[in-house]
Computed example of a mutant assay.
Amino acid sequence: MKKKLLFTFLLSLCSILPSLAQYNNWAVGFQLVEPSGVNLRKYFGENKAFDISVGTYGLFYGRDRKYRKGFYQNAGLSLRATYLWHRGLFKKELLHVYYGFGGQINSRRYYFESRNAPGLKEYTNNISLGGAGLAGAEYFVSGSPLSCFVEAGLYAELVPAIFYLHPQASLGVRFNF
């Protein structure tokens, strides 16, 4: 009798775990486009999440873009942390929409014309800091710990180039546990 009860309990637990994995837990995955890299998300409360993305900056948007008195000509690294609000749509709540705000720090080469040799380009490694806004949709695959997402946002740099704007959009997959 005890074995049957334990087996029933474990079977019940295994059947509800995929649905529990979709809410109020951790998710790790990867995303492509801008930024491309690793994504970590912590769901908490009924409708909040904290999202961290580490990846490329400027790989798809703005590889050759004017910046201050010079230009960007390459991709860099980015760390974005965003506080999100989300809510489920429809009865099954497999589709969630979300939005949020946070901060972002980037490292990228900044190219400019040399003061000592006109016509010669020099570069320096540039660290920038600014705010980030983000909105997206996430679909939780029924009976699976996987979710797919698409999101878009905007980075507004504060240091060193105040209000330098950089669009961001990505799609990806997360494993929820």
Rank of each mutant, 00 (worst) to 15 (best):
G119Q: 11
R68C: 02
R115H: 02
F149N: 04
V33D: 01
N25C: 07
G143I: 04
A169Y: 06
G58I: 10
G100N: 02
Q22K: 13
N116P: 01
E34V: 04
L79S: 02
N125Y: 13
R115F: 10
L158C: 12
F44S: 04
A27V: 05
V150R: 13
I162F: 15
R174F: 01
L146C: 03
F140N: 04
G29L: 09
P18W: 07
F90C: 01
S19K: 13
Y43N: 12
V159C: 05
A132K: 14
W26R: 05
G131F: 15
V38N: 01
A117R: 15
E93Q: 15
F175A: 11
N126L: 15
L10V: 11
S170E: 02
A135Q: 13
F175H: 02
A81C: 05
V54C: 06
P35C: 12
L95K: 10
F177T: 10
I52F: 08
N25M: 08
A135D: 09
A27G: 12
L84S: 00
T8Y: 03
Y111T: 12
E151G: 01
Y83V: 07
L120Q: 15
E122A: 13
S128Q: 10
L171H: 05
L120P: 00
L154K: 07
L79Q: 02
S53A: 13
P35K: 11
Y57P: 00
P160R: 10
Y139W: 14
G29K: 04
L158H: 10
T56N: 10
C14M: 11
A137L: 14
L165V: 15
V159H: 07
G37Y: 04
L95H: 08
L6A: 13
A81R: 04
L146I: 11
Y123K: 14
D51Q: 12
G119K: 10
L158N: 07
Q31E: 15
Y57G: 07
I127D: 12
F50L: 15
G58N: 04
L89A: 05
G55Q: 03
I52V: 15
L17T: 11
G45F: 05
R115M: 04
L11M: 12
F149E: 03
N25E: 07
Y111E: 13
A161L: 04
V33A: 14
L17N: 06
R63P: 01
E34R: 13
G37M: 02
G131Q: 08
L89R: 12
